[in-house]
């Protein structure tokens, strides 16, 4: 028996909207730790790791570890039927091939049930070791989204270079080149506008812009984004959800031919 109650359906809606275009089908794993998902995109270039911690739920009952295969597009369709301030309850009986999403309006005057078919997904689970990254940048999530979108219109790849002074995003395309430097800056009006750099070594890596753009669909989840890079390692783009957990995107770099 599984029963998870979350007061803000809006959060789950945002989570689904941020990954449904990157990953078609995925297993949601439910354990004492929380409600989690790990999935690669179809070309195995990017990986999504989501954790919604059990203590972030209003009610969390998971009798034993269970894995539920879901089509994320269909799940997103069902969640779009909930209002952001509805309470959502996710329910599944042991051995059942369906999951139920129940939405309750804040005044309890509207209660809806959506039952969705589960699917068998044979997915590969990767072990991601805890790593010390050579460079970590924390910056405004909306600024990062803007940069990825702007550079994506000019070139297919983005070079991200971190130095002590700042982070530089560069691209090159048929029409020309573009460079954006975001300097380290903590003297800001709003905490989320700060650009903080922790760096052991300068790092410069090249990534496909379309994946970075896809990751920024998670921007509504957090004010800041954390970008972690090391040479010869996938970049990690993380959106931390206050009290709830995180959405992490891993992207393998491109290398010179």
């Amino acid at each position: 028996m599984l029963e998870l109650r979350l007061t803000q359906a809006g959060l789950l809606k945002k989570v689904l909207e941020s990954i449904k275009d990157l990953v078609t089908d995925a297993n949601f794993d439910c354990s004492a730790t929380g409600f989690s998902l790990q999935a690669m995109d179809s070309s195995h270039v990017a990986l999504v790791a989501l954790l919604l911690r059990s203590d972030g739920f209003e009610h969390y009952r998971c009798d034993h570890n269970i894995s539920m295969g879901m089509n994320l597009g269909n799940m997103a369709k069902m969640l779009r039927c909930a209002s952001d301030d509805d309470t959502v309850t996710i329910k599944a009986d042991d051995g059942s091939d369906t999951v139920t999403f129940m939405f309750e309006s804040p005044s309890q005057d509207k209660i809806s049930d959506y039952e969705m078919k589960l699917m068998d997904i044979d997915s590969e689970h990767l072990g991601i070791p805890e790593a010390e990254y050579q460079a970590i940048v924390r910056m405004s999530a909306s600024e990062f989204a803007r940069i990825c979108k702007d550079l994506g219109t000019i070139g297919d790849t983005v070079i991200i270079s971190v130095t002590k002074e700042g982070v530089q995003f560069s691209t090159k395309g048929d029409i020309g080149t573009a460079n954006i430097i975001c300097r380290k800056n903590t003297a800001v009006d709003k905490k989320e506008e700060a650009t903080v750099i922790e760096m052991a070594e300068p790092v410069s890596l090249t990534f496909a812009s379309r994946y970075l753009i896809a990751f920024t669909k998670a921007t509504p989840l957090a004010g800041q984004v954390t970008i972690s890079m090391s040479y010869d390692m996938p970049i990690v783009v993380e959106y931390k959800m206050e009290t709830m957990g995180y959405m992490r995107f891993y992207l393998a770099p491109k290398i010179e031919e």
């Binding site: 690669m40 070309s43 195995h44 270039v45 990017a46 990986l47 590969e124 689970h125 990767l126 072990g127 991601i128 070791p129 070139g155 297919d156 790849t157 090159k172 090249t206 496909a208 390692m233 996938p234 891993y250 992207l251 393998a252 770099p253 491109k254 290398i255 010179e256 031919e257």
Partner: peptide
């Protein structure tokens, strides 16, 4: 513009 590496080249199956 470069060779795209795969995520499975970095992380192993568990």
């Amino acid at each position: 513009q470069g060779v795209q590496l795969s995520i499975t080249e970095f992380y192993c199956s568990t």
